[in-house]
C-alpha cells in the first residue's frame, strides 16, 4: 500500500515537475511508494483526511483548528526561520488610493478558498472586528480556489481586492514578479501558524514517526534541502497545536460575531 499524501494550494501545487521530484525523494526516504493526491479545493482534501482516505496532508491552519479532533499534527514548515506566515490583503497596482480593507466596501473581492485561513478567514475576521457583515460588505466576491489565482484576478482588476497567502505572494514575487507587480499590498495580518502537515487520526504511531522524522530531517539531506529551497522553506519543526490558537480565535469570532 502506498502512502497517500494530500496536497492543497497552500503552496504552488501546480508545479508538476517539482511535485514529481518531491515524491521520488519521499519514496526513497520512506522506502515506500508515495501517491500525491491533489484536489480542486481544501475541503476535498480535508474530507479525505477525515474519512481516513489519506495518510497525510498538507492543509491550512483553518481546517486544522476546525477538525483538530479528526487529524494529528505531524510537522510545521519553517518559513524565514519561523513556523508562521501572514495573510496579505492586495489591490490592483493601479489602485493607488486604497489603504485598508475597510475601503473596499461595495467592491468585488477575490477569496482563495472558503477553507483558507489567509485567503478567507483573515479578511472576514478583520471585517467582523470592524462591525461589518463580511457577506454583505462586498458587492460581489468569488473564489479562485488557489492563492496564485487571487494574485492574477487582482492583477487584471477582475477583483478590486483579494486575500492571499503571504508566503505564496512572496514566492511568486521571486518566480513570477510580473504577477505580483500588478498588485499592491494594503494590509498584512499578524504572524499566524503556518499551514501544517497533518495525519489522519488513526495513523499508526510508527508511520507517523517515520514520516515526521523524514520531514524534520529534510533540511539535513542535500536532496531534501534542494527541494526545500525550491519551496522557499527552511525546514520543518514539530510544532504545537497551540501555534494555531490565534486562528481558532479568529474562526470563533467570525462564526459568532
Amino acid at each position: 500500500m502506498p502512502i497517500r499524501i494530500g496536497l492543497t494550494p497552500v503552496f504552488l501545487d501546480d508545479q508538476m515537475r517539482f511535485v514529481g521530484q518531491w515524491r521520488q525523494w519521499l519514496e526513497r526516504k520512506l522506502g515506500r511508494a508515495v501517491v500525491f493526491v491533489q484536489r480542486g479545493s481544501y475541503r476535498e482534501i480535508v474530507d479525505l483526511v477525515r474519512a481516513h482516505k489519506l495518510d497525510f496532508a498538507w492543509v491550512c491552519g483553518y481546517p486544522f483548528v476546525r477538525y483538530q479532533n479528526e487529524m494529528t499534527l505531524v510537522a510545521v514548515p519553517l518559513w524565514r526561520g519561523q513556523p508562521s506566515y501572514q495573510s496579505y490583503i492586495i489591490v490592483p497596482a493601479d489602485d493607488t488610493r486604497s489603504t485598508a480593507l475597510s475601503e473596499l466596501r461595495g467592491k468585488v473581492f477575490a477569496y482563495s478558498d472558503p477553507d483558507s485561513n489567509s485567503g478567507y478567514l483573515y479578511p472576514r475576521y478583520v471585517l467582523t472586528t470592524q462591525g461589518e457583515a463580511p457577506d454583505n460588505f462586498f458587492a460581489r466576491s468569488f473564489f479562485t480556489w488557489a492563492h496564485r489565482k487571487v494574485v492574477e484576478a487582482v492583477g487584471v482588476a477582475l477583483a478590486d481586492g483579494g486575500a492571499v497567502d503571504g508566503y505564496v505572494w512572496e514566492t511568486l514575487a521571486e518566480s513570477h514578479p510580473d504577477l505580483t507587480r500588478a498588485t499592491r499590498i494594503i494590509d498584512r495580518s499578524p504572524p499566524l501558524g503556518y499551514p501544517p502537515f497533518v495525519a489522519r487520526a488513526d495513523i499508526p504511531a510508527d508511520e507517523l514517526n517515520r514520516f515526521r522524522t523524514v520531514l524534520l530531517e529534510m533540511a539535513d539531506d542535500p536532496g531534501g534541502l534542494e527541494l526545500l529551497r525550491r519551496l522557499r522553506l527552511d525546514g520543518f519543526t514539530v510544532g504545537a497545536p497551540t501555534l494555531y490558537d490565534e486562528i481558532a480565535d479568529m474562526a470563533a469570532r467570525v462564526s459568532h460575531p
Binding site: 468585488v108 458587492a139 460581489r140 487584471v156 482588476a157 477582475l158 477583483a159
Partner: peptide
C-alpha cells in the same frame, strides 16, 4: 458578469 477586460467592464 465577467469579461476579458475587467478594467473596461467592471463586474456588476
Amino acid at each position: 458578469f465577467v469579461s476579458t477586460r475587467p478594467r473596461t467592464f467592471p463586474i456588476g
